[in-house]
Amino acid sequence: MKRRHLILGGAAVATLGACGAPSKFKRYRGPEVTGVVVNKAERKMFLLSDSRVMKEYDVFLGFAPEGHKVMEGDGKTPEGVYRIDRRNPNSRFHLSLGISYPNAEDIRVATELGKSPGGEIFIHGQRHPMRKDSGDWTWGCIAVSNDEMENIYAMIKDGTPIAINP
């Protein structure tokens, strides 16, 4: 009888272990993402493989989306060409990919104004995992849904160029 309980108990533990929450870390085996384009006016982000659009996403931007980010706290999303330069699997916003803002020109302009250019600009997920965000709400980042962010995080490699257009 004890042997039967051990076998059934072991099977139950193995079965329950397989029932955990799905991982936020997905695998991607498709074509390489060679570039990202964000069109701020349209609130759209495109993942490209060479010149072909692979995916299109609706995005949220900084709470003051018009114009290029000039200084820390202005609520603007930068404009220009940058790179994805880091990953944050423990982001407050589900997952996030860092954007190489500020570049040398961004630093120069802010310094001439006696200001800090800011930094910590990311593509990231939602503020609240159970509620859908609405309107532009970030401090200059580019936000998508958490489900979309899981796919984007898997697809984009560090070093991928990102063009952020007005």
Rank of each mutant, 00 (worst) to 15 (best):
residue 1 M to N: 10
residue 4 R to V: 12
residue 5 H to D: 11
residue 6 L to H: 08
residue 6 L to W: 09
residue 7 I to V: 14
residue 7 I to A: 10
residue 11 A to E: 13
residue 11 A to F: 14
residue 14 A to S: 15
residue 16 L to A: 07
residue 22 P to Y: 07
residue 22 P to W: 07
residue 24 K to M: 00
residue 24 K to Y: 02
residue 25 F to L: 15
residue 26 K to A: 05
residue 26 K to P: 02
residue 28 Y to A: 07
residue 28 Y to H: 09
residue 28 Y to R: 03
residue 28 Y to C: 04
residue 29 R to K: 06
residue 32 E to G: 01
residue 33 V to E: 14
residue 34 T to R: 02
residue 35 G to T: 02
residue 35 G to P: 03
residue 36 V to A: 05
residue 37 V to K: 02
residue 39 N to A: 04
residue 39 N to T: 03
residue 42 E to A: 15
residue 43 R to D: 06
residue 44 K to L: 04
residue 44 K to C: 03
residue 45 M to T: 03
residue 46 F to E: 10
residue 46 F to G: 00
residue 47 L to C: 01
residue 49 S to F: 05
residue 51 S to M: 03
residue 51 S to I: 06
residue 52 R to I: 13
residue 52 R to L: 13
residue 53 V to C: 08
residue 53 V to M: 02
residue 54 M to F: 06
residue 55 K to M: 06
residue 56 E to L: 08
residue 56 E to T: 13
residue 57 Y to F: 10
residue 59 V to S: 09
residue 59 V to T: 12
residue 60 F to R: 12
residue 63 F to S: 14
residue 63 F to E: 15
residue 64 A to N: 12
residue 65 P to M: 11
residue 67 G to I: 04
residue 67 G to C: 07
residue 68 H to P: 04
residue 68 H to Q: 09
residue 69 K to I: 12
residue 71 M to S: 13
residue 74 D to Y: 12
residue 74 D to K: 01
residue 75 G to K: 03
residue 76 K to G: 09
residue 77 T to H: 07
residue 77 T to P: 05
residue 79 E to W: 14
residue 79 E to Y: 13
residue 79 E to P: 12
residue 80 G to T: 15
residue 85 D to L: 08
residue 86 R to L: 04
residue 86 R to I: 00
residue 87 R to F: 02
residue 88 N to I: 03
residue 89 P to I: 00
residue 95 L to D: 01
residue 96 S to W: 05
residue 102 P to D: 08
residue 104 A to H: 06
residue 104 A to G: 01
residue 104 A to Y: 00
residue 106 D to P: 12
residue 106 D to Y: 09
residue 108 R to W: 10
residue 109 V to I: 15
residue 110 A to H: 14
residue 110 A to E: 10
residue 112 E to T: 03
residue 115 K to Y: 13
residue 115 K to G: 05
residue 116 S to N: 13
residue 117 P to A: 11
residue 118 G to P: 01
residue 122 F to Y: 14
residue 124 H to F: 09
residue 125 G to C: 09
residue 127 R to E: 10
residue 129 P to H: 11
residue 130 M to A: 14
residue 130 M to Y: 15
residue 131 R to P: 00
residue 133 D to G: 09
residue 133 D to Y: 08
residue 133 D to P: 00
residue 134 S to C: 11
residue 134 S to Q: 13
residue 139 W to L: 15
residue 142 I to R: 01
residue 143 A to H: 06
residue 143 A to T: 11
residue 144 V to A: 05
residue 145 S to D: 02
residue 147 D to Y: 06
residue 148 E to Y: 01
residue 148 E to M: 04
residue 149 M to L: 03
residue 149 M to H: 02
residue 150 E to D: 12
residue 151 N to I: 02
residue 152 I to E: 02
residue 152 I to R: 01
residue 153 Y to N: 00
residue 154 A to C: 01
residue 154 A to Y: 03
residue 155 M to Q: 13
residue 155 M to Y: 07
residue 160 T to G: 09
residue 161 P to N: 04
residue 162 I to C: 02
residue 163 A to C: 00
residue 163 A to Y: 11
residue 164 I to K: 08
residue 166 P to R: 10
residue 166 P to I: 00
